[in-house]
Design a protein around this nucleic acid. Structure first.
Lengths: 241, 241
DNA sequence: TAATGTGAACTAGTTCACAGCT
DNA sequence: AGCTGTGAACTAGTTCACATTA
């Protein structure tokens, strides 16, 4: 998914983490915030792992890549770990987001409160349709896509979110890139072509459902073929750990 | 993410695919539909791989797990491959979805047209707040969560989508499970506890952004530390393939 | 000849299990 | 005593490169 590649000369202060680890850090961060709210100021790898939905060995290995922020016999300092993870993820500087495509989904994301609390603020909304332009959502007004470059520069936008229909997505991506945006979150169900150095992540709801469908289908198939007459206990249904 | 595990006794008609392959099949399917619309009735691994945003070796290996549906020297029959992938994903039977939590995001998903075209239909909407219940969205009316079990049975719901606030998510998951739902797509930023045999997938928009933020941060750090005075060519910016 | 299907080599990610701190 | 941090073993996933087949 990540499309850039850098040479392996990691600065000592900034080791390049395994991609799988990077993908889990936000989850740890979320879990840590929850724990902090609940008043914990220290947590064991076991405890944090449970809160984040992974096993403790994986968690310890992940955190070890950041350096040694735990205390043997005790656990991790919650506040310290939050600070460290936020630093690594680059959340110390508050990041601003531009949303392009103010349809159903765009509206929902524009109004979503969950971003601000997690290091992001939606700083601008864009659409190509005159009908949408000028509409007020929260404390933002939808602007025309032609103003993109200007606003990206003015607001220091660092992430572009595409919530347009498929047919417009590539065009919007091109304009975002031209405006200097180097990170894109794409909700349109299509592959975007972007130059090297630009990162694209894709969220496709139908894909998620189809993956679930596969497992649902498999459960149905594996439950039936061996329809033991249930002499003892319940037959069928996939087996847990 | 998938939480069920089955023994490796795969029926010959239903090999158990690598999880990574399963996660890509929906993308191939989408690409194939696009190609079909454009009038292609055959496509090479190279062509399909490009359309799906992967490399061709990976694509061929993935498809080889399904069986031999290609023709050497020619490529893959688009229509045939669509049929096969849909069969494997269990999309031959149209799946119905229940959406719980009709806030911002729930509204957007309820109104999203992209599901029907990809094998799913939203068959019911639920909320716990009296304020929402009774509201009409598209051709559905929001029902109270207490009707969940009844409707799941009546409509043969196979997937539950949670778009409630965090604090309600676990409770809703419990009720979905109690109602017999064994696949859940969770948009609430928390880990859900579910019994074995129930699959949960999570979509967290803030997590996606934080991953982008990490790479953005890294680009900034790797671009600066070696600020060559640009004797020839542009300095900085992550290097492409 | 052109493109699939696949063993073999390689790379990334996970889990184990325990040494080493506090 | 308890919990982290980590080498080592293992497992999953990717890529290569080519034999095979239409």
């Amino acid at each position: 998914m990540s499309q850039q590649r850098t040479d392996s000369s990691a600065s000592p202060a900034f080791p390049d983490l395994p991609e799988a680890t990077v993908a889990r850090l936000p989850e740890y961060l979320r879990a840590l915030h929850t724990l902090a709210e609940q008043g914990h100021d220290t947590v064991s790898s076991e405890g944090l792992a449970a809160a984040a939905g992974v096993n403790s060995a994986k968690l310890r290995k992940d955190l070890s890549h950041l350096g040694s922020y735990g205390t043997r016999g005790v656990g991790y300092d919650v506040a310290l770990l939050i600070t460290q993870i936020e630093a690594v993820l680059g959340l110390s500087q508050h990041r601003t987001v531009a949303l392009v495509g103010i349809g159903n989904l765009g509206h929902a994301l524009a109004g979503y409160g969950g971003f601000a609390s997690r290091g992001f603020s939606v700083a601008a909304l864009f659409d190509a349709e005159r009908a949408q332009v000028g509409e007020r959502i929260g404390d933002l007004v939808v602007r025309h896509i032609d103003e993109l470059a200007e606003v990206v520069a003015a607001e220091g936008i660092s992430i572009g979110v595409i919530t347009t229909p498929v047919h417009a997505a590539q065009h919007v991506a091109d304009r975002l890139v031209a405006a200097g945006v180097t990170s894109i979150l794409n909700f349109a169900p299509c592959v975007l072509a972007v130059p090297p150095g630009v990162d694209v992540r894709k969220v496709d709801l139908a894909v998620e459902m189809q993956i679930l469908s596969f497992h649902e289908h498999r459960k149905a198939l594996t439950a039936l073929p061996v329809p033991r007459p249930a002499p003892n206990g319940r037959a069928g249904e996939a087996i847990g750990t």
